[in-house]
Each structure stands twice: as structure tokens, then as C-alpha cells.
Amino acid sequence: MKRNYDIDVLIEKFKKKDKIALARLITLVENNPETTTNIFNNFDSSENDSYIIGITGSPGVGKSTLVNAFSKILLENGKSIGIISVDPTSPFTGGAFLGDRVRMTDISLHPNIFIRSLASRGYKGGISRAVFDISLLYEAFGMDFIIIETVGVGQSEFDIYNLAYTTIVIMVPGYGDSIQIQKAGIIEVGDIYVVNKKDLGGEDIVVQMEMMLDDATVQSGWRAPVVMTNSITGEGVDKLIEKILYHKEHLELSELLKEKKKHRFAYKIEELLSSKIGKVLESLISEDDLNKISNSVLQGKKFKIYDMVHDLFSNVKFEMKKSD
């Protein structure tokens, strides 16, 4: 049995808002990145611009449940939504257990929503390589909002900040003391902070967060608010939506949205370039060369590692082909 992934047929159906076609095009850009150019050539810049919201936070803080809760309200307001939910890939087997959908059963059948789960597939930073490409597909499909939910993150996985216009960092009661809150990384990328599971307390974190945010010397004209929610009962979710829309308006009025959009593409351009250079390097530097260096390092030359890599690299002659 042959599965149908004919790009021309899929594009034709996609343009008629066929979700089956959208799903299969996503499979193509995720599994066969070389098809992406061919697919994207069917769209032009006049396609819809979606508003991109990023949701991040540690494992189990309620990201998916909160996405479910606030998507419901956006849907009630007639908005269309494309969700991308990322869960981690096993570094040992390459397998993944994607469980975000379980929290979104409520909204999954709404005609104006599309949910796709993604495995991170070795990509660092809390998202996956295909997230950017899928966000472009959602834009072409005409989604009003795109919601990107990261894997459960630690302190330094905040690539979502490069793609989303509004980044929401979710915390829960028991996060840590005032020292934790001063740390760089995940705790500084939020445009909105949520303390979820408010039934468990968390007022102390809100106070610490408010103090930290008041002290912040980086000025973007936006003071990130802190919202308390209970994603299961829906308490506080209307407040969160209000803050999201308020931030959206702030970006639009201050022209910062243009900056965010530019940044989103610059981030991808840089990644695409590194990937091209990586491929060229891979083809030019042989396994033997690498083995020689590793062996020398082991044979008492560990302090020459920088020199040896530099020498190897200076002998490489670059020649780029468009297909790389």
C-alpha cells in the first residue's frame, strides 16, 4: 500500500483548507526537509500572518492543560489556532512518548483548531527543528494564532523566545527562593509569567517575581505581568488571555512586533547557514582526520587540541553548491 504524499495534490487540497493535506505536508517538512523548498515555493509573502504564542516551563507545570484552557476561550471568540506541542526524544533509542494531546481532548474536535505533536529529535533548546517550518505552514493555512508548547524545560532551554512574539513562562508553587528567581535564562525570557496550580499556594513566588521584575534594568517598555491560574478549573485563564492580547497590542503599537518578526527569521537563517556549513565541513573533513586528532589527544597532546583543530580547519578548501 502506497501512502499518498504527492506535493502538488496536497498543495491543491491545502489551499482549500483541507486538514488532511496540512497534516501530510507537516509530515513531509518534518521527515524530509529537502521537500520544504518545493512546498514553500507554492506560497507567497501575501499569505496570512499569524500571531505566535510560546508556552514554556518545567515538566509537569501544566503547559498543555493551560493551552487547552486558553485555546477554548480563543476559539469561543472565533479565532483559528494551530498548536505545535513538543515532547522530548530519547537520546538512547530515538523513540518518544508524546503525551500532550491527552490534555487537549476537549478542544481537539473544534473545526478551527489543528494540533500536532512533535518529538524534539535531538534538537536542543526545548523545541524541534521542524517547529519553524510548521509555523510557516500554519500561517499559509490561515491560522489567527499559533501556539508553540515547548518540551518541559530546564534553566537554559529557551529557543522558544526566538520564534514566539509572546513568550509565556509557567511556574508552579514551590519554584524556589528569591535567589532562583534572580538567575538568568528561562526566568528572564517571559513576556508573561504564570504561576499555575494556584490551589497549591504560590503567593510567595508571585511576590518574589514581582520584586525581581521591578528591579530588572533591561527596558523594553513592557513590564511582564505575573498571573496566577488553575488550568484545570480555568481560574485566572481569562486574566491570562487579557494579558496576552495586551502584550500583542503593545508590540503592534510600539513597532516591536516588526523586530520580533525579523528576529524570528534571522534565527532561522542563522540555523540554516550553520547547517549548510556543517554539511560542507562534514564532507570535507574525513573520519580519518578526526580520528587522528582524537588519537593524538589521547597520546599526550591534550593541550594541543585547539592547535590541531585550527590546523585541520585552515587546510579545508570551501566550495559551496546550491544543493548543500
Binding site: T89, G95, G99
Partner: peptide
């Protein structure tokens, strides 16, 4: 999952 597959639960 342990066999290297992506499982959507």
C-alpha cells in the same frame, strides 16, 4: 518508545 518509535498517547 523503547524500540525507537514516536508514540502519541
Amino acid at each position: 518508545r523503547d524500540a525507537g518509535m514516536e508514540v502519541i498517547f
